[in-house]
């Protein structure tokens, strides 16, 4: 493998890896406040992309993207309030099946609304063939958009959780729900907020990635599986580790094309998921001591 080709694959891997990491962070936000794995997480990304494309026909792109994020956030809130908020002491099995049912519902609704067609937003700057050259490595400006927006998103989330009152309240709920409630924090509202937040970042990711990967009514499923793989790889609930894990998985997947047909790309990612679950369910960066207290 020549060196510039190596970098070319690396860039592709990092791009995809960033998106997987964003999906994984979406999983983590909901998991931390509720202990639920939201199987409909990938559908938020799909919805964001789809709504963004639809709105872009009417309004300029930045407004369309903002609109897509807001609408998807509303969908997230609606889902939580309609389907999860009022359940009393639901079992894990029940929650899994409910979020699976929701993901099917959203997907079928998207099929009804937008059909089977593949859509995409235009490239934010330039066109599909525009590229910046660094030596012999060519990078599409959209890749820089993906990396830049993701970095800003992660920084903003960090600020939100570390510095704002609302973010601290959410973290308090994640640490100890009863104690947080005793301090006057409404745990139920925090759960809704976590759905809103992860729907929002999913939608934003769906918008920025759509020029590269395109979006279709069923593109959420595989994103959710990859995102979950990354979340597990980094250790469920640990968002910073998810970024490292995302870049790792994206690169592995990208380089796997060297040794296996592209049709098996997803198989690589999922095999890694199974392997990690079997060997080290705490994730690569997880703490084995703390893990002993948890149930896998």
């Amino acid at each position: 493998m020549s060196l510039d080709l190596f970098f070319q694959y690396l860039v592709a891997g990092i791009t995809y890896g960033t998106i997987y990491a964003i999906v994984a962070i979406g999983f983590n936000i909901i998991y931390n406040t509720t202990g639920i794995i939201n199987f409909a997480q990938g559908e938020f990304v799909m919805l964001g992309g789809m709504i963004g494309v639809t709105l872009h026909a009417l309004v300029p792109m930045p407004v369309a993207i903002a609109g897509a994020v807001v609408v998807t956030m509303l969908v997230g809130a609606l889902i939580e309030m309609l389907f999860i908020r009022w359940l009393r002491r639901p079992s894990v099995l029940r929650l899994i099946i409910i979020t699976i049912g929701l993901s099917i519902g959203i997907r079928e609704l998207a099929l009804l609304l937008w059909g089977e067609g593949v859509r995409a937003l235009p490239y934010f700057t330039g066109t599909a063939v525009t590229s910046l050259s660094i030596g012999d490595v060519h990078i599409s400006p959209q890749v820089l958009w993906v990396l830049g927006i993701s970095a800003v998103m992660v920084a903003a989330l960090n600020f939100f959780f570390a510095r704002t009152l609302l973010g601290r309240q959410m973290r308090a709920c994640a640490c100890n729900r009863e104690a947080a409630q005793l301090c006057g924090i409404s745990a139920k509202n925090m759960v809704t907020l976590s759905f809103v937040l992860s729907a929002g970042i999913g939608a934003l990711a769906g918008c920025v990635i759509s020029p590269i990967t395109y979006v279709q009514y069923d593109s959420g499923t595989s994103l959710a599986l990859k995102g979950f793989t990354v979340a597990i790889l980094g250790g469920l609930g640990n968002s910073m580790a998810a970024i490292a894990a995302g870049l790792l998985l994206g690169s592995l997947e990208s380089f796997s094309i060297w040794v296996m047909p592209a049709a098996y790309k997803d198989v690589i990612a999922i095999s890694i998921l199974l392997l990690i679950l079997f060997v080290r369910p705490t994730g690569l960066f997880g703490n084995a001591e703390a893990a002993r207290l948890k149930d896998y």
Binding site: I96, L273, L274, P281
Partner: peptide, 16 residues
């Protein structure tokens, strides 16, 4: 595995 982990692992197997 239990709970979410079992669900995701079997889902992963099916997808493979």
């Amino acid at each position: 595995l239990r709970g979410h982990y079992l669900a995701m692992a079997t889902l992963g197997f099916g997808t493979i």
